[in-house]
Amino acid sequence: MEKVFVLISIFFVIYLIFFKRLRIFEILTVLSTLILLLIVGIRYKHFPVVGLFETLNFYALSLILIYFIWGTEDKKISNLVYIVSLVLYSLSLFGKPFTSPFVSDSLNTLLFPVHVAFSFISYAFFTLSFLYALSDRETDRVLRLNYLGFITYTIGLWSGGIWAFKAWGVYFLYGMKEIFSFVIWIYYSGIIHLKYSNNRKLINIATIVGFAIVIFTYLGIGLFMRNTHSLR
């Protein structure tokens, strides 16, 4: 049943890319994803950002919303945003909502929604900055989006660190996912310093590489490697 909502979003997004950019379809895409996440949350009694299906939908929703707020009325960028969203929605069809009757007690904390929501919001910021960098447009916006991504990512990391300490007794583990998460943080802390360098090309290249690290951390490690944040 949940996948129907994904298919609805896919329909709207395809229309937005290949036909006409209608505000009403943009709003309906957001609404259908919101309703989907709401249904999953109520039906399976957890904050709906667990596993591949839910995280991809949350990620797509965050990207579109962030584009509404921090993006520009640029046809090329809007098309790129909807193409990425289309990829995210389509990939989510390979997953399913987290339906296990056993939800660990450790997820029963406010730190869980804060950690995952801010992490995916930051991914959305990094994705949008990547799309601007890729199009070689608005370096100031790229830097601003990177900084916003860095702030939200730091909040995600900070809440994850506190949660990890409360649940495992350590705020950092020497695992693939955790090391890469740390890499994203230090790498983007480097990028935000580039504000003062005025080197547009370097900013764009660094942003594109940063996005590659983010995607590998989320999907590469999450799907294909042993880790504490498995998406499988």
């Binding site: 090391i179 890469f180 480097g190 990028i191 580039l194 660094a206 690290i213």
Partner: peptide
């Protein structure tokens, strides 16, 4: 910036 990139590289 380059120090942070280098640290990222070695961490990866």
């Amino acid at each position: 910036f380059y120090a942070l990139v280098l640290a990222s590289f070695f961490c990866i």
